[in-house]
């Protein structure tokens, strides 16, 4: 719920900076390793929108694939968790390149 409220505050701030009155559509990017339950976020977002500039706004959540680069052998690969081993050399020294992001990507406003 605090994440949904953060999104609304972010929309309110953007409304002042970018001069819009209402938000009709919100596109979020939430990576699979972002520690957030997407269905819960949808539910909370709807609740948080009530009585705000984003009332009844549509919500789309884009989930990019999680990818990491091995710091041992340099190979880039998809990953499914924070403790995957490198599929090429077996090292656990994988640096996440994408997949833990949680950001507001785009808005449709009026």
């Amino acid at each position: 719920m605090s994440i949904a409220n953060s999104i609304i505050r972010l929309l309110q701030q953007q409304a002042q900076e970018q001069h819009f009155k209402r938000v009709k559509h919100v596109w979020l990017q939430v990576g699979p390793l972002a520690m957030v339950e997407v269905e819960s976020l949808r539910f909370c977002f709807t609740a948080a929108c009530r009585g705000t500039l984003a009332e009844e706004a549509a919500l789309d959540i884009i989930s990019p694939e999680a990818r990491a680069r091995c710091q041992q052998c340099g190979e880039e690969q998809p990953v499914t968790s924070r403790f995957d081993a490198c599929v090429h050399c077996g090292s656990y020294r994988l640096q996440l390149l994408q997949g833990d992001e949680m950001r507001v990507h785009e808005l449709e406003v009026e």
Binding site: I3, I7, L10, Q14, R103, V104, H105, E106
Partner: peptide, 8 residues
């Protein structure tokens, strides 16, 4: 459409 790209 407004591009935001801002961390939540």
């Amino acid at each position: 459409l407004v591009q935001i790209e801002q961390d939540i």
